[in-house]
Amino acid sequence: MPRARPHSALLLALPFVFAACGGSSMPDPKDAVRAYAEAAARGDADAIYGMLSEKGQRSLSRDEVRRLVGQERKELADQAKALASPGVVVKARARVRYPDGEDATLELEGGTFRISAADALPAGARTPAQALEQLRRVLARRSYAGLLRVLSPSTRSAIENDLRSLVEGLEHPEGLEVEVAGDRATVQIPGGHEVKLRREAGVWHVEDFD
């Protein structure tokens, strides 16, 4: 597709409402693409505004869309031609957000939505923002397995190796030398690890380890 200038790129990037609503059959996303291409070719600002989602209409007023379309008629015409070319591939994606903040991403394949990412399944972030969102979710759930999934392979491998080494070093804790200083203690673990402990209300807790 030809490179779009900022204003027309903004129009194209905003979410559009599928042409059909209601009924038991799912609307074809190609219909929305085709309708947009036709509206862009005509320079029909009202039609383009009508296809914007509620979020899109909150971002741009009808008058703003008319002004942008008036400024970018040639660019929109080029986009319309590109969208109508045989090589265009239309992909539909749905995002389901649950009341607790978790969500799942689905992609349309062969007329059926299939899960591409869910909180309990490995997910591939397509943008840095998605990766950060995944990190927030797993931290909110205190999910160690989820945290490992969002880390890069090298970081995940390093953490797993460190934890494996720590587990092996703690195999016989009764044989380790513990340096106690009041309510604090330090233990050197085979493999180069160190564990710091602290006693509170007569109970020892692990305060830190590396």
Rank of each mutant, 00 (worst) to 15 (best):
Q188K: 14
Q71E: 15
D119Q: 12
P153S: 09
V69M: 01
A158R: 15
M1G: 11
D208M: 05
A80M: 07
V69H: 03
A4Q: 15
L151A: 07
A80C: 07
Q188D: 09
T105C: 07
V187F: 03
S143H: 06
A140P: 03
V65P: 05
T127W: 06
R93E: 15
G110N: 14
N161T: 12
R67S: 13
L14D: 08
V150K: 03
R114H: 09
F18P: 08
V195N: 04
A117N: 06
S25E: 14
A77E: 14
R3P: 08
G56S: 04
R149T: 10
W204S: 10
G101C: 05
E38R: 09
S24R: 15
P86K: 14
L176A: 00
G192Y: 06
V206G: 01
A20P: 01
L76Y: 02
R66H: 12
L52T: 00
G111V: 07
A84R: 09
S25M: 08
K91P: 00
Y36K: 02
E107L: 12
E194D: 01
E179D: 15
T186M: 11
E54H: 07
V96A: 13
R73C: 02
A39H: 00
S152L: 07
A120P: 01
L11F: 02
L139Q: 14
G111Q: 06
E179H: 13
V195Q: 01
G175R: 15
P6G: 04
R149H: 07
L121W: 12
E194G: 05
R142P: 04
L148C: 06
E174H: 08
A47V: 04
G70S: 06
F113N: 00
E107K: 13
R62G: 05
K81Y: 03
A185N: 10
E102G: 06
R95C: 08
A47S: 08
Y98V: 03
Y36M: 06
P190Y: 09
A13H: 13
R93K: 15
Y36R: 05
W204M: 11
V96Y: 11
G101N: 07
C21K: 15
K81F: 05
A37I: 01
P86G: 13
L83E: 00
E177W: 03
A13D: 14
L163F: 12
G22Q: 04
E160H: 00
R198Y: 12
M26A: 15
Q57C: 05
H172G: 02
P128T: 07
S53T: 10
I159A: 12
L147P: 02
R5S: 13
R66M: 06
P190E: 08
D210L: 08
M26T: 11
G191T: 04
P190A: 10
T155M: 10
G111F: 09
G50C: 00
R136V: 14
R164T: 13
M1T: 12
P122T: 12
E207V: 03
E171N: 10
P27S: 05
G56A: 05
E179C: 02
P27V: 02
L163M: 14
M1D: 09
A45D: 04
G70C: 08
G22L: 03
V167K: 13
S154V: 12
D103V: 00
R34H: 08
G110C: 10
Q134P: 00
R184I: 12
E64N: 08
V89E: 07
L106I: 11
V17N: 03
